[in-house]
């Protein structure tokens, strides 16, 4: 019996693993090799051991970009996931026009980043932007947003969360479809309130979906690039220079492919460890095995 299951297991993963071996494993291994060389992306790479990694520990620009990225991830992942779940639950209510609302929430996901960036720059504008005119009308503090080294990163975070809600919302929505409505009905009869229904039914049953959303968000937040590339190019004064932006610069502008690869592997190690911890945590909470 077991042997049959094993054989079928390999059979089912075979197409995936062949593609994986040809198109992903080699680039993955090769870029690790490059991280041990002085490759500039052109001349045959020279092996230099762990020199790139040693250099990284002293590279203040890299260390700062790591801090910026960490800060970005710590804020956007939990806030983004929570808001997406909330949006999914709202949009799972049976109501008229729900298809239209769902589409509205999904629009930021498909709208081009360039278009989004131009609009948000305008929203953030300190002279005539929409946000600060509202803040002014309410007598609130008007942040300098993208114009300041302190506020530029939060500005990008807010925009990223906004853009990401629709993506995760779709996944949560799909997850919610797997929960039988009869569970809620019997809970209602037992007198459970909305909050209790959420903590006792929705959240536990969405466990696997949440793990997916959180891990994917972690992976993509650590690799945030497009927003920075389009909106600030890492400025002002490097306050939004995230790791992947620095990797991009090193790989394609500074002729430092090897050094860029070393950074990529440091980033990889961090994401991998965080993901591992996250799955362990999720498993511990797992009651029914």
């Amino acid at each position: 019996m077991v042997r049959k299951e094993t054989a079928w297991g390999y059979f089912f993963i075979a197409p995936m693993m062949i593609g994986f071996a040809v198109f992903m494993l080699y680039p993955f291994v090769y870029s690790f090799y490059l991280s041990l060389t002085s490759s500039d992306g052109i001349v045959a790479p020279k092996f230099i051991g762990f020199d790139n990694y040693a250099k990284l520990l002293k590279d203040t620009t890299f260390l700062r970009s790591l801090r910026v990225t960490l800060y970005f991830t710590l804020v956007t992942v939990p806030v983004g996931a929570a808001l997406s779940l909330l949006a999914a639950m709202l949009l799972n209510i049976k109501m008229r026009f729900v298809t239209w609302y769902r589409t509205a929430f999904f629009l930021p996901v498909i709208t081009s980043m360039v278009a989004i960036a131009t609009v948000w720059k305008w929203l953030y504008n300190t002279d005539y932007g929409l946000i600060n005119s509202i803040f002014a009308a309410l007598g609130l503090y008007e942040p300098p947003w993208l114009a300041s080294a302190k506020w530029a990163l939060p500005s990008i975070m807010i925009m990223s969360i906004w853009k990401g809600i629709g993506f995760n919302m779709v996944i949560f929505l799909a997850g919610l479809q797997g929960i039988s409505p009869s569970l809620y009905e019997s809970a209602k009869i037992d007198g459970a309130g909305a909050f209790r229904r959420f903590t006792n039914i929705t959240f536990p049953l969405l466990r696997h979906t949440t793990v997916f959303v959180v891990i994917m968000s972690i992976i993509s937040s650590f690799q945030v690039f497009d927003q920075v590339y389009v909106m600030t190019q890492g400025g002002p004064a490097k306050s939004t220079s995230v790791v992947v932006y620095y990797i991009y610069q090193n790989a394609f502008q500074f002729f430092q492919q090897g050094y860029a690869s070393a950074m990529a592997y440091v980033l990889f190690a961090i994401i991998f460890i965080v993901t591992l911890l996250q799955t362990r945590l999720a498993k511990n909470k797992d009651v029914d095995g």
Binding site: P27, I219, F222, A264, I271
Partner: peptide, 8 residues
């Protein structure tokens, strides 16, 4: 998925 595409 954890390696940025810029190096692969």
């Amino acid at each position: 998925m954890m390696i940025p595409y810029h190096v692969t």
